[in-house]
Amino acid sequence: MTIKVGDKIPSATLKVKTEGGIEDLSTDTLFGGKTVVLFAVPGAFTPTCSVKHLPGFVAHSADIKGKGVDTIACLSVNDAFVMDAWGKDQQADGKVLMLADGNGELTGKLGLEMDGSAFGLGTRSQRYAMVVKDGTVAALHVEEPGAFEVSSAEAVLKAL
């Protein structure tokens, strides 16, 4: 079942790379008492994700945070080392928190996985963006396969 507006974000453990190494970050900590824009991509360093999706959130991070958003986070079914390298490549430091859902735990619990095995990707996340307020989904924009419209930084800005 796919998560919907009004649902609570399920408990899951994500990974982030910090100066101290790889650290766990629970969804309860990430979303509790905060307004978070979470967007997900099928894969780090992939074309649409690297040319449009992440760069849009980096470019508009101040505008998004100016609307009362505490954290902008990018999620992918990749490992924390890849997400860290991609964030550095995209100059996301301090603007977008790069989250690794390496085993697809949160992605599966959200019901937003996709089968990318035809492209050699295995199970990945669908492309989406959501606004989460104190752990509850306030807005959810899931893309149709192959599309990039409703989950862009510009679309999220309009929804805030």
Rank of each mutant, 00 (worst) to 15 (best):
N78W: 07
A73G: 07
W86I: 06
V131E: 04
V131C: 01
D134H: 07
K52A: 10
H141E: 11
G120K: 05
K158S: 15
S61Q: 06
L140C: 12
T136G: 05
S61E: 04
Q91F: 14
D89A: 13
T2K: 14
N103Q: 15
S26C: 00
G111Y: 10
K67R: 15
V41Q: 06
L14F: 11
V36Q: 08
F45E: 00
S76P: 12
V96N: 12
T48Y: 00
E144G: 14
A73P: 08
G21Q: 05
A129C: 08
A153V: 04
V142S: 05
H141S: 14
L112I: 03
T46L: 01
Q126Y: 00
A12C: 08
A59S: 14
K158G: 07
L121R: 04
N78A: 03
C49T: 04
M1A: 10
T46W: 02
I64Q: 11
D28A: 14
S61P: 03
G32K: 15
M114G: 00
D101C: 02
M98E: 03
E149G: 11
L121A: 12
Q91C: 05
P42E: 00
Q91S: 12
F45V: 00
G102Q: 10
G32R: 14
V5D: 02
T27R: 05
L157W: 04
L75C: 12
P10V: 03
D89E: 11
D89W: 01
T136W: 12
S50R: 05
G66Y: 09
V131R: 13
G108A: 01
M98V: 07
